[in-house]
Amino acid sequence: MSASFARALEAAHDAAGSQNHPTSTLYVVATPIGNLADISLRALHVLQKVDAVACEDTRHTQQLLRAYGLDRPNGQLLAVHQHNEAEASEAVITRLAQGERVAYVSDAGTPAISDPGARLVAAVRRAGYRVLPLPGASSVTTALSASGMTGEDGFVFKGFLPSKSGERQQAVQALSQESRAVVLLEAPHRIEALATALAVLGDRQITVGRELTKQFEQIETLSAHALPAWLAEKPERLRGEFALVLHDAPVAASMGEGLRVLQLLLPELPLKTAVKLAADITGESKNALYEQALALKNA
């Protein structure tokens, strides 16, 4: 632990020590998405105070706690992840029944936002115990705040799209008909496939957040059709975790119907014929439909 975090622990105690921290309570604690300094004073105090820490990955969480000088015996770390969340919730509820305070953290960010935690929270509530959230870092709000979106029409959080190509294309087709901003998440080994799928959205703007809050953070806004080429320009652009904001678009400007018709025609007809028929059927721009057809073929 660095001296700076030693002072942070003192500040955490001064700031939150006098607050009420009820027993028999599950504390849902947000942790940094990359920058250790993004931990809140309240989170530090609670992680020090609770009787046990339930977590997505015990090794990862032990390293995180150690960085803040909050080492815990292995017996106080409970593994609660996507593969065992239902069963592991019972162990947490048993501790709550004994009057303990239990914190839950995911590997990064706010639990239950494309991370485990939702089933645990639901089980604890059904059992009649209190759930107390500690807000903090989230890649969703971080990406939105840097995208320039006003949020006047709200936004949609989709998280990770399906990994299978056909299902992913169907999901993108649905996004093409969504006029509000959409937040997506993606892992480095799948970002190229996602970019190829999103390219059919043509000129619709996308803000790409890579390695958010970390040393090599990169945030760029570009057209959807330009995203595959942008990723391919430099190898480092394929590294790290991604949060993407698909900017909002007027309903009249969306290419939903044209894209749907293209997806039906392309498997049966030559590209130019499919584009001409799609333009005749929908009344949409032939040039724009041609770009979408090329992107679909590449996908």
Rank of each mutant, 00 (worst) to 15 (best):
Q63L: 13
G75W: 08
G109H: 02
P188K: 14
Q170C: 11
E152F: 03
D51Y: 03
G17P: 01
L144R: 01
Q177D: 12
L238H: 11
H21T: 02
T207L: 10
F160D: 04
V172M: 02
S106G: 05
V121E: 00
S145E: 06
Y27F: 09
Q177M: 11
V29F: 10
A127P: 00
S179M: 13
L231I: 08
S18G: 10
L227E: 07
A299D: 14
A226E: 15
L238V: 00
D71Y: 13
L96F: 01
V200K: 05
L96M: 00
G159N: 07
T58P: 08
S2T: 14
S285A: 10
A293C: 08
T23H: 11
D280G: 06
Y68I: 06
T207W: 09
L44T: 00
D153T: 15
A197S: 15
K276E: 15
L41H: 10
M1V: 13
I206E: 06
L269F: 11
L44W: 06
A171L: 06
R125W: 01
H13P: 07
E236H: 14
A252C: 05
L132E: 15
L269H: 12
M149E: 15
R72L: 14
Y68M: 04
Q63D: 14
W230S: 07
P135H: 06
H189W: 09
G209E: 04
S2E: 08
A226M: 11
S106K: 02
A279F: 13
G75A: 14
E192F: 01
P73G: 07
G117W: 04
A193E: 14
L9C: 10
V156H: 12
L231T: 01
K272S: 12
K297I: 10
A37R: 11
A171T: 05
Q177F: 05
A193P: 10
W230M: 11
A30L: 10
T142V: 07
R210N: 09
I33G: 09
Q98W: 13
E291M: 13
H225R: 13
T282E: 06
D57A: 08
K49Y: 04
L96V: 01
Q205T: 11
A143Y: 03
H21E: 08
L161A: 06
G75S: 12
V245Y: 01
G154F: 05
S165Y: 11
V105N: 02
T110N: 04
